[in-house]
Every structure is written in C-alpha cells, then in structure tokens.
Design a protein around this nucleic acid. Structure first.
Lengths: 122, 122
DNA sequence: GCCTTTGTCAACCACAGGGTTGACAACGGT
DNA sequence: ACCGTTGTCAACCCTGTGGTTGACAAAGGC
C-alpha cells in the first residue's frame, strides 16, 4: 500500500472514517467534534484523521489549540475518474460483444462461431 | 470491516487486485491467466479473487477444472453513487456558502456577520 | 505564572491480511 | 485406470492497523 489511490481506498474502507468524511461535507470540524459521536478515545480519532490526511482526503490547519479538519473534495474527482474509466472499459467490452452478436445475426449461414467464451457465466 | 461498501473499498485498496479488475474489463479469465503476470503463487491470487468475490466485484463459475472469473460491473455504479453523493453534499455546502456571501453583498449595511466560521482554512 | 483545554506521540496489544508451502480435490486427456 | 492440469484449503509467518493508556506539547483563560 504505497500509491495514492491505494491509500484513498484503504482510508475509505473504514466505516468510521467514511462517517467522518460524511460529517465533514457539512463543514470543517475539530478533532473533538469529530470524536464526540464515537465510543473510542480521541487518540484513535486522531489516528483516523492522520490516515485521511495521508490519503489526501483532508487537510488540517491550526486555530489556537484547535486543529480544524477540512475535507478536500478534489480527491473524489480522482476516484470518480478511476471508477468511470473502469465502467467505460466494461461498457466498451459489452459494446464489442453486441457487435459480435450483430455480426452473427448478419451472416447466420456460418455453422457456429468458434467458442464465444464469455456469456457462459451464470 | 463487515458492511458491503467497506469490503468493496478494502478490496480495491490493493494494487494487485485493482490490476486484476482492470484486466477483467477486457474479458473473463481463469485463475491461471490472472496469476501469470505476477510474481506470486497461484494460491495468493486465489485469495485475492476470494476477496474480490466476497466484495461482490467478481463472480466465479465452473468450466471443467477451470474457474472463469467474471467482473460484475454493477458494483462500480454502487461506488459511483456513493462518491457522487459526497461530492454533491460538498457542492451543496459550497452553494450555501455562495448564498451567504451573496446575501452579504445584498445588504452590506450590516456591520458584520457573526463569525462565518468556514472559509478561514488555508 | 499556572491550570485547563485540545490534540499528538509513543508503547503496547490483538487481530486481520497478504504471503508462503504442502496436501488434496475436481476434472479432462489419453 | 492413471496422470496432468487447475485451483482450493489449511497451517503458518510477518507486517500493518485499530484500539488502548500514559506522557507531553501548544495555546488561552484567569
């Protein structure tokens, strides 16, 4: 787990951290604020925030003793792009499959295509 | 790590598994096919596939000794929805901020709004 | 100046996760 | 029937991670 995207996914793999992210969409919050709803120590929350920060999902500034946490929304774009890329590739594949099937219909005289290989699932 | 989304994110947090997913967008593949490019044992790959399967990202059927692996694209939609939800909430927040600022411009005669609280970050 | 508030750092513990090797199950080919 | 191919299961090892507690840093309030 070294690359950026791995860190982002790993950070979001924890329900507590996802919950924190959700709450941060409503505005910046201090560590104490974020810790309040959970039955864990503030140190544990601090660790979670460190994970989120190292994943680039949040930034922390300084306001007296407080360390307001701020959500960095750009990372979501990064993830969305990645996922969309996969979706698009998958769709392209389906498109190709459709093309193959269309072609099949086009000249039905061929005995049989040699092992379509996909589609057999389920 | 028990809920669905956690499993999906955790599964995708591993570069090897992400790579497998990428390759599966090009079509179903056997365990051996998937294992080939990596310097790990086939057992390790089998484990990775189990993780992907339990996350609902992949299904496995049977073809003689072979176990063709098939990508389930729907899960990506699930993730996209989640992420989009967060993005939207964040955008709504920015929108509200804009509204506040607009309102501020609207009646500039007020001495000062009482602590905007956000925006101070960075 | 001192105490309180807010949060981090360090050490430790338990457990999950990715890797290995070895055994074995499920088939097809011959 | 038997062997080879394909893949899973089980046991084990090591590292990473989430949790704890205790000490301490940083800053304001009094």
């Amino acid at each position: 787990m070294d690359d950026r995207l791995s860190r982002v996914f790993a950070a979001l793999a924890d329900p507590t951290r996802r919950d924190m992210v959700t709450r941060l969409t409503e505005g910046d919050a201090t560590v104490g604020d974020l810790a309040a709803p959970y039955a864990v120590s503030i140190q544990a929350v601090s660790k979670h925030l460190k994970v989120l920060e190292e994943a680039g999902l949040v930034t922390r500034s300084r306001d007296a003793q407080r360390r307001p946490v701020h959500l960095e929304a750009e990372v979501f774009d990064l993830m969305t792009k990645w996922i969309e890329r996969y979706r698009r590739r998958a769709e392209e594949r389906f498109q190709r499959l459709d093309d193959v099937l269309a072609e099949l219909n086009d000249d039905t005289r061929h005995d049989r295509i040699d092992a379509p290989k996909e589609g057999t699932a389920s």
